[in-house]
Write a protein that binds this DNA or RNA. Structure first.
Lengths: 226, 226
DNA sequence: CAAGCAAGTCACGGTTTGATAACGCTTTTT
DNA sequence: AAAAAGCGTTATCAAACCGTGACTTGCTTG
């Protein structure tokens, strides 16, 4: 999942970038509103974390401008403790959640995971597709009650496909959501990843959840239950 | 386990810090409500001890503000003997237990142990995971009815993993819970501790309760019984 | 003070990982 | 039908990650 972080305080920015990159997200970050607006307009993010007090363009206006361009990824705003009134303006401007500084990293992660999941239309963290069950909280994948051991990238790929099940995802879209801005789009990582995933998932029976649409992309083809 | 102590009287604060650090907890302490609120918002504590009569921000408001931020570690409040009515307000504000001054240190310890145990969702002080039995009261660990001799840090590591069994715990999370705020996160203590633990636990049979998830952390993989 | 132990650091090595490249098969285009 | 494009598969390699033994430090204790 790709995340846009806009935070002016360098130390917090760096520590958040590091923390969020570690397992869950591909992070691009900006230190002011102008650069942030540029990035947000230019790339397809899945979620944004935006500090309200920013130089150049303030957070509220930034959000308004993004929303005016019909850029609709969910946004979580950060407000300083003294300025909790800002949260109201932020939510009115089109933000989806807020967190008051200072906060726990784990808390931020939990909220972001919930936001991205809900934005794709899934209420529960457990996704059931017949004999394939995906737990987005513990990052475990079960096939017929047996746990698969997937690497991080394998898991992230599968999760993105599953969250967007029944939709055709182009390889470009997949790369853009799994990697950050400076990544070679001509690589064949995706093919390799898909290959490895299919092999692990299909080890026993004949479960082929990922369909190829030649020239268009891939589609996670299982129906979601409950 | 990490504990937050907020107490304005310097002498009591220091003696409590010393006593609690001695065996059970990594203690951060604050002398007024403002600093306490900051610490409590910033770090992932497992339990808090808060004096009700505090300068800057009083204990009741402090607890309310923490709870409003969805910070939910259990809190034990200390009330002066004359002001025992405060306990009601405190519990209403979101505290979990109280103790009237003066008290015995051992009494405080017993209450705290009970609180942390309950907050992780375990009623009894004895945790059974097959042939591995953990007594959180006496801090003894039995494997096939034979007692292991673990050091404090080894025990604390194992306890934290066991209390959060089946969840993936990153090395960062472990470090943050085992040590207080200023500890080098780049150290490899955790790897060493896990190594020593595994060696002691697995001495005889082939009991491998701690799984490694490369790039993500560790997971205590035994199912809890009863 | 010397011995003993707890606990942290360091350095080395094995293993896993993820990116890339190369090759071949299949479908589409010319 | 030949050429080109798209995709699957396998091999390879460097970097990251983790485990481990040896060493160091500091505390406790007889």
């Amino acid at each position: 999942m790709r995340l846009l972080l806009i935070e002016d305080e360098p130390q917090l920015r760096q520590s958040l970038q590091q923390f969020l990159s570690k397992t869950d997200y591909s992070v691009d970050s900006a230190g002011d509103g102008k650069e942030g607006l540029y990035l947000g307009s230019e790339h397809p993010y899945d979620v944004g974390v935006i500090d309200i007090g920013l130089p150049e363009i303030n957070g509220i206006d930034l959000i308004k401008q993004l929303r005016a361009q019909h850029i609709d990824f969910p946004i979580l705003i950060l407000t300083a403790r003294g300025h909790w009134e800002d949260k109201v303006k932020g939510l009115e401007a089109g933000a989806d959640d807020y967190l008051v500084k200072p906060f726990h990293n784990e808390e931020l992660r939990a909220r972001l995971n919930a936001l991205t999941r809900r934005s794709k239309g899934h209420a529960s963290p457990v996704l059931c597709y017949g004999s394939l069950v995906l737990n987005t909280a513990s990052k475990q994948v079960l096939v017929d009650d047996a746990e698969l051991s997937l690497t991080q990238y394998e898991y992230n790929t599968l999760e993105y496909l599953a969250l967007n099940h029944q939709r055709v995802i182009s390889k470009t879209e997949l790369t853009e959501h799994l990697y950050d801005q400076d990544f070679d789009l001509d690589s064949n990582v995706i093919e390799v990843l898909i290959g490895r995933l299919r092999k692990k998932i299909d080890r026993n029976g004949l479960l082929k959840p990922i369909a190829t649409l030649r020239g268009q992309g891939y589609r996670f083809a299982l129906e979601k239950e409950s």
